[in-house]
Amino acid sequence: MKIAWWKWLPFQRWRIVGEAESADEVPDRLPRNGVALVRDTNRVKWIVFNCPCRTGHRIMLNTDAARKPNWSLNEVKPLTISPSIDFQGANRRCHYFIRNGRIVWAKDTYR
C-alpha cells in the first residue's frame, strides 16, 4: 500500500489514507489521524489505525457483520466510525468516538 505524500501533512482531520487487500500490507507507520482500509473486491473487512492517545498501539476494527463485535464506517467525508472504540490494555484504557473526522473522548476514559 502506497500513501500519497500530501496525506502526511499535519493538522488534518481523521481520514482514509489508503486501502490494502490484506492486513499484512498495511504499513507499520501511518500518517497522523490516518485510517487504512483492508478490503476485498466489494466490501471493507478491517479498519486499521494508530490509537489517538499516541502511545503507539495499533487498532484493528472488524467490519464484517457476521462476526462480533463489528463497526460501521461512513466513507464519505468527514470520517465517522460507530460505535465507540474501547481499547483496554494492561495499564491504560482508551475509549473514544470518531465523529465527523474528530476524536471525542468518552467521559469514563482515564489516560
Score class of each variant (00 low, 15 high):
Lys2Ser: 11
Trp5Asp: 14
Trp5Pro: 07
Trp5Thr: 13
Trp6Ile: 04
Trp6His: 15
Lys7Ser: 10
Lys7Tyr: 09
Leu9Asp: 06
Pro10Val: 12
Pro10Arg: 09
Phe11Met: 03
Phe11Thr: 03
Gln12Tyr: 10
Arg13Pro: 02
Arg13Lys: 12
Trp14Met: 04
Arg15Cys: 03
Arg15Glu: 03
Ile16Cys: 10
Ile16Asn: 08
Val17Phe: 03
Glu21Ile: 04
Glu21Asn: 14
Glu21Ser: 13
Ala23Phe: 01
Glu25Ile: 01
Pro27Tyr: 10
Pro27Gly: 10
Pro27Phe: 05
Pro27Thr: 11
Arg29His: 14
Asn33Glu: 09
Gly34Pro: 09
Gly34Arg: 03
Val35Met: 02
Ala36Asn: 03
Val38Glu: 09
Val38Asn: 12
Arg39Gly: 00
Asp40Ala: 05
Arg43Gly: 00
Arg43Ile: 01
Ile47Lys: 02
Ile47Arg: 02
Phe49Gln: 07
Phe49Pro: 05
Phe49Ser: 05
Asn50Ile: 08
Pro52Leu: 04
Cys53Pro: 06
Cys53Ala: 14
Arg54Met: 09
Arg54Glu: 13
Thr55Cys: 14
Thr55Glu: 14
Thr55Val: 11
Gly56Val: 15
Arg58His: 10
Arg58Val: 08
Arg58Cys: 09
Met60Phe: 02
Met60Glu: 11
Leu61Ile: 07
Asn62Val: 08
Asn62Glu: 09
Asn62His: 08
Asn62Pro: 11
Thr63His: 12
Thr63Gly: 05
Thr63Met: 10
Thr63Ser: 03
Asp64Gly: 03
Arg67Met: 11
Arg67Phe: 15
Lys68Pro: 10
Lys68Cys: 15
Pro69Thr: 13
Pro69Ala: 14
Asn70Gly: 08
Trp71Asp: 01
Trp71His: 12
Ser72Cys: 07
Ser72Lys: 14
Leu73Arg: 05
Leu73Gln: 00
Leu73Gly: 00
Leu73Cys: 01
Val76Phe: 01
Val76Glu: 10
Val76Tyr: 00
Val76Lys: 02
Val76Trp: 00
Lys77Trp: 00
Lys77Gly: 00
Pro78Phe: 05
Pro78Leu: 02
Pro78Asp: 04
Ser82Gln: 09
Ser82Glu: 06
Pro83Arg: 12
Pro83Tyr: 13
Pro83Trp: 10
Ser84Tyr: 13
Ser84Asn: 15
Phe87Trp: 07
Gln88Arg: 15
Gln88Pro: 00
Gly89Val: 12
Ala90His: 15
Asn91Phe: 06
Arg92Met: 12
Arg92Pro: 00
Arg93Phe: 01
Arg93Asn: 11
Cys94Gly: 07
Cys94Pro: 02
His95Ile: 06
Tyr96Thr: 02
Tyr96Leu: 12
Phe97Glu: 02
Phe97Lys: 07
Ile98Leu: 08
Ile98Ala: 09
Arg99Val: 13
Asn100Arg: 13
Asn100Asp: 14
Asn100Val: 01
Asn100Cys: 05
Arg102Asp: 08
Ile103Phe: 06
Trp105Gln: 08
Trp105Lys: 07
Trp105His: 07
Ala106Gln: 12
Ala106His: 13
Asp108Lys: 15
Tyr110Met: 07
Tyr110Pro: 02
Arg111Asn: 11
